[in-house]
Write a protein that binds this DNA or RNA. Structure first.
Length: 332
DNA sequence: TAGGCCATCTGGTCCT
DNA sequence: AGGACCAGATGGCCTA
């Protein structure tokens, strides 16, 4: 079964309401409409429920009795049930179809807005699309991190900046962020240039101190980096959480965030790295001998970032080798 | 194969 | 009455 392609409203096929199926011979729609037959099934169940109270009950008697009074019904107590005429059923069907189209359009608009949000994320990637929830979380973290950069002089190249960005994110997303920000001094791919410009411009009139020449990140223990743990320590010491509103983190006097998402697992830089098959333009292959990309320490993240790792590598026994350290990150 | 993510349909509620 | 918004339900796709 093929899933119905993402069809914009007005771009193609007309949505078919479950009612159209129900109105028919109860056979699932064929042709294009069968692509989402599960929806008809799902809708059909709900449609039974919907019509069950009055419409479906009276469906049998509606046609010939339209306009006539049922004596038995007159004697019934309670509000008089509306008769289900074909016209009424048709009105309902049309209303439902229109409502479905509106809802689709609304969700498409929501998705468009989400997509535009994705594009301004600090680690926007064409190859690894952030999920909706991760996009929202990262956006929230990004705003917090930039606010801290403006207010407190937090370096955008500092570990704290990355910790703030990674707060509450899933491991793949944390790896994505790490792949973009995991740099030492002089690496040059920490922050999007336009964002640097924005921060600088915003900080200038405020007298904000925005440092881009921080000592840089200490070489992380390659493979594991428990940002959640560090964040927690910072919070206990009055770290990054101080900038947040009291009711956000201190509700109930606990001092811990009400929701940090799932516990951030240890950040594994390596888990998101795959051997880079093609030589990076930044690393033209030597003419004589060309060691494998892995041997060269070249990896490509799923986000399109090229990572260079420093240290020896034994392709036959990689598990016995000491962890190599990320020395530079390039973007394709 | 389980779980995450997603698109879609649907009925309820609120508002104009 | 009709539209916007929301949450629940459902099933397909993808990946670890």
């Amino acid at each position: 079964m093929m899933i119905k392609p993402y069809v914009r409203q007005g771009e193609g096929e007309e949505a078919v309401s479950p009612l159209q199926w129900m109105d028919g011979d109860m056979s699932s729609p064929d042709g294009d409409a069968s692509d989402s037959s599960h929806h008809y099934r799902a809708g059909g169940v709900q449609q039974d429920r919907e019509l069950g109270s009055e419409d479906a009950h009276e469906e049998d008697e509606e046609d010939d009795e339209e306009g006539q009074e049922d004596e038995n019904e007159c004697k019934r107590r309670g509000p008089k049930k509306k008769r289900v005429t074909k016209a009424r059923q048709e009105r309902f069907r049309v209303r439902r179809v229109k409502a479905n189209a509106r809802e689709r359009s609304r969700m498409h608009g929501l998705n468009d807005a989400l997509e535009s949000l994705r594009t301004i994320m600090p680690c926007h990637s064409k190859t690894q699309k952030l999920s909706k929830i991760e996009t929202l979380r990262l956006a929230r973290n990004y705003i917090c991190a930039l606010s801290e950069a403006l207010e407190g002089g937090l370096s955008t190249e500092s570990r704290a900046f990355m910790e703030t960005l990674c707060k509450g994110l899933s491991q793949p997303t944390s790896n994505l962020v790490a792949g973009c920000l995991q740099l030492g001094p002089g690496s040059g791919a920490v922050m999007r240039p336009e964002d640097r410009h924005r921060v600088r411009a915003a900080a200038a009139p405020l007298g904000g101190v925005v440092s881009y020449s921080s000592p840089g990140l200490p070489s992380p223990p390659y493979g594991t980096f428990d940002s959640a743990h560090l964040l927690h320590l910072r919070a206990m010491k009055g770290g990054v959480y101080e900038n947040h509103s009291p009711n956000e983190y201190n509700a109930g006097g606990v001092g811990t965030p009400p929701y940090d998402g799932p516990p951030t697992p240890p950040l594994s830089i390596s888990s998101n790295l795959v051997p880079k098959q093609e030589p990076s333009p930044h690393y033209p292959p030597p003419h004589h001998y060309s060691p494998s990309p892995v041997e060269q320490g070249l990896y490509q993240t799923q986000t399109g970032y090229d990572v260079h790792l420093e240290g020896p590598y034994d392709s036959y026994h990689p598990q016995h080798m000491p962890p190599r350290q990320i020395t530079s990150v390039y973007r394709d």
